[in-house]
Amino acid sequence: MTTYQRVATACRMAAVAAVGAAVWTGLRHEWILAAVLAYGSGWLVVLGGLCHRVHLVDQTRHEQARRAANTDPATLSAPLPCCSFWRHSGGAVHGRDCTRPPDARFVRDGLPLDDAETAAFDAITAHALKEL
């Protein structure tokens, strides 16, 4: 167990004990003490949750570092270009000869291109291909 796990578990156990004490003092008509214990138990639950979250973030970072250390740099490579226009635009724009699915190629801002936009795109593509 990590330190954060221990603190989270201790906070949760203390919160359960504080709720039990609040119930016991409430049955004895010590309302102020019962309210203070119940309020404190709420903060203990919050603190335990925060510690648990820090533990999960720490665990995720360790896993990412472990995976990064185990990858072989020789096997890592850039994605293969799907079309000539993608190669010359740095991956920002795709041309008509693109091998990706049509939905991924001809969509701008989540909407399909209309006729005017398609004509403008074709003109840009033709001009870029002439420069090759």
Score class of each variant (00 low, 15 high):
Asp72Glu: 04
Ala74Leu: 03
Leu111His: 07
Ser89Met: 02
Leu56Lys: 01
Ala116His: 14
Arg67Met: 07
Arg66Thr: 12
His94Asp: 12
Ala78Ile: 05
Phe106Asn: 02
Arg67Thr: 11
Glu117Val: 13
Asp115Trp: 10
Ala123Trp: 10
Ala68Ile: 13
Leu113Arg: 08
Ala116Thr: 15
Pro101Ala: 07
Ala78Tyr: 03
Val57His: 08
Cys98Gly: 09
Val107Ile: 12
Asp122Gly: 08
Gly91Ile: 03
Arg108Cys: 01
Ala120Asn: 12
Arg100Met: 07
Arg61Val: 05
Ala65Val: 00
Thr75Cys: 06
His52Lys: 09
Asp97Cys: 01
Thr60Tyr: 07
Leu56Glu: 00
Asn70Phe: 04
Thr60His: 04
Ala92Gly: 10
His62Asn: 02
Asp103Trp: 06
His88Ala: 15
Arg61Glu: 09
Ala119His: 12
Gly91Gln: 05
Gly42Lys: 11
Phe106Glu: 01
His94Gly: 12
His88Ile: 15
Leu113Val: 09
Val45Gly: 09
Pro81Trp: 09
Leu47Asp: 14
Asn70Val: 04
Thr125Leu: 05
Leu47Arg: 13
Glu63Ala: 06
Arg87Met: 13
Arg66Ser: 13
Ala104His: 06
Arg53Glu: 11
Thr118Asp: 03
Val45Glu: 07
His52Ile: 07
Ala123Gly: 06
Arg67Val: 10
Leu76Asp: 05
Ala92Asp: 10
Val93Asn: 03
Val57Asp: 08
Gly91Thr: 08
Ala68Gln: 14
Thr75Glu: 05
Val93Gly: 01
Trp86Ala: 15
Thr118Cys: 07
Thr118Gly: 04
Asn70Tyr: 05
Ala74Tyr: 00
Leu50Asn: 12
Tyr39Met: 15
Arg61Thr: 03
Asn70Thr: 07
Ser77Phe: 04
Leu50Gly: 13
His55Met: 01
Pro102Gln: 03
His88Glu: 15
Trp86Asn: 15
His52Met: 06
Gln59Pro: 04
Leu80Glu: 07
Cys82Ala: 11
Ser77Leu: 02
Asp97Gln: 04
Leu50Ala: 12
Val57Ser: 08
His52Ala: 11
Phe85Ile: 15
Gly95Ser: 09
Leu113His: 04
Thr60Gly: 02
Cys82Tyr: 05
Ala119Trp: 13
Gly110Leu: 00
Gln59Thr: 14
Thr71Lys: 00
Asp72His: 02
Phe106Ile: 01
Pro102Lys: 01
Trp43Gln: 12
Leu76Trp: 08
Val54Ala: 08
